[in-house]
Design a protein around this nucleic acid. Structure first.
Length: 203
DNA sequence: AGCACGATTAACT
DNA sequence: GTTAATCGTGCTC
């Protein structure tokens, strides 16, 4: 039976959660069908002092969810057209989250292809807004509970990713953010995911 | 009330 | 390599 990651998984250091989410399975239930993928890229955003984190603005209507209980979804809209998915981390009251930047398709490949028309397979879910398109994730899922199946979006234990398969790098897209936040290596990637995860077959 | 900008993507040259 | 698309958010007036 798939084990849904409990609140205790998220109620830890955001860097540990970002690292450990690699290989876990992000699951979306669409019309009773499981659409899922293994998480292969994440980024950590940690507290009001992290000038790359939205919580640098303090408590606002948008950032409020990051101050709430761990294991909830923080879904926000950017560039006028894209939704991005985060998992809230750390103890309630401390604002932090992990951005899910890429997944390796696992289940529901037919639905994913339909939701990413005309794109080659490797571009289905290799970006933070591409995966939300593929899994039909938008603002309605902000504050969803990722530790229960109730909201149709959760994260399960997946496949282990060994330390030698993990790369760290600076976070993406923080052009105007001052140092050290701009270059601090809080991005986590699985190297050569094709060697680790099975190629999903058509259903 | 107005404004600058963004945790991006796709389509260009 | 460059750039347009497009609008919610937070900040300033």
């Amino acid at each position: 039976m798939p084990e849904i990651l409990p609140p205790a998984f998220y109620r830890r250091s955001t860097l540990a959660v970002a690292r450990d989410l690699l290989g876990m399975r992000l699951v979306r239930l669409l019309d009773g069908v499981r659409v899922s993928g293994y998480i292969i890229e994440t980024e950590a955003y940690i507290g009001e002092t992290d000038l790359g984190c939205h919580a640098r603005a303090g408590r606002t209507p948008r950032t409020e969810v990051m101050y709430g209980p761990p294991g909830r979804a923080y879904v926000y809209f950017t560039y006028g057209m894209h939704w991005l998915l985060n998992a809230v981390t750390e103890a309630e009251g401390f604002p932090a989250a992990v951005l899910i930047r890429a997944i390796w398709p696992a289940e529901g490949v037919t639905i994913i292809r339909e939701r990413r028309p005309g794109r080659p397979r490797r571009q289905w879910t290799d970006g933070p807004a591409k995966l939300t398109q593929a899994l039909a994730i938008d603002g309605k899922l902000n504050r969803a509970d990722l530790t229960r199946p109730n909201d149709g979006l959760w994260i399960e234990r997946g496949l282990p990713v060994l330390p030698e398969r993990v790369t760290t790098a600076p976070r993406v897209g923080l052009y105007s953010v001052p140092e050290p936040w701009k270059s601090i290596p809080w991005r986590f990637l699985v190297t050569n995911p094709a060697d680790v995860f099975p190629l999903a077959h058509e259903e």
